[in-house]
Amino acid sequence: MLAYIIRRVFQSLLVLLVVGLVAFSMFRFVGDPIDNMLGQERTQEDIDRLRATLGLDQPFPVQYAKFIVSAAQGNFGVSYRQGRPVATIIAERAPATLELAFVSGTLALVFGIGLGVFTAIRRNGIASNVIMSTSLIGVSLPTFLIGILLIYLFGVTLKWLPTFGRGDVVDLGWWSTGFLTASGLKALILPSITLGLYQMTLIMRLVRSEMLEVLRQDYIRFARARGLRERSVNFRHALKNTMVPVITVVGLQLGAIIAFAIITETVFQWPGVGLLFINAIQFVDIPVMAAYLMLISVMFVGINLIVDLLYFAIDPRLRIDGRHA
């Protein structure tokens, strides 16, 4: 068990170092920072001096190590486009993305599990069939088209909901929230549906198929024979045992939500980190790109590590196997 954890942590760090290498090479090989910083009027001495001050005359591995150290401290330099520290810009943008991801994740989880259980219990009902066929369309529609469709329906035609931006936000020191104003909450509705729909369908289909599998087992039949109430059988006995694969998928989808937020944020002009990244790609703003690359990798590697470790916590069988192995 301990050996497994150590190996997984080591592996995660290795991945991060490789991603760091990619991010660092972008800095190193795209353009010459000296060119950007010194104007036309420069002497070779100026160049050499600046090169020495910035440490650019040092060998590649040394520079790389320095980059990793400052990246680990959250220092990614200054955005080419905005002229401000990247860390500040990302910190400004993060609340928007995190709030959006939180709301859509909650939506996906609540409706996904609810509808999954519902369609599994009423397997042959009309409502279940309608839900299942609708979910197929939901899976095959590209995210951005869902967003545009929602904008057209609720924004342009019905004029019920705002279609871009976050509405009014309240500043709570280092965190700006849209949860506290009516317009902020209204602005959250369409983007979070767009972002959460795919994940919801995925969770629903997974819960449904797992539930169907579990409901067939003997212990469920036995629980029924003992005269337990239907509710208790379905939720206490059946649902609980479907949770292991669901937690894996939910964990991994958490990362996917952040990734797909890029698309949703672009469709709705949501001022989050994803939109920042897309703009950074368009304008080749390397510090921002590198920071996002590192940030998203840390997140994904972290989530995966946690999901793997959670297995041990949830499934006692794995613990026993681990001890024997």
């Binding site: 972008m26 795209v30 890029i262 790109m289 690359l293 998203i296 995966n304």
Partner: peptide
């Protein structure tokens, strides 16, 4: 472990750089 659309986006970004 990374969604493929994200990988594609990151590669596009790096390549553009």
């Amino acid at each position: 472990t990374f969604p493929s659309i994200l990988v594609a986006m990151l590669i596009t970004g790096v390549a553009k750089g």
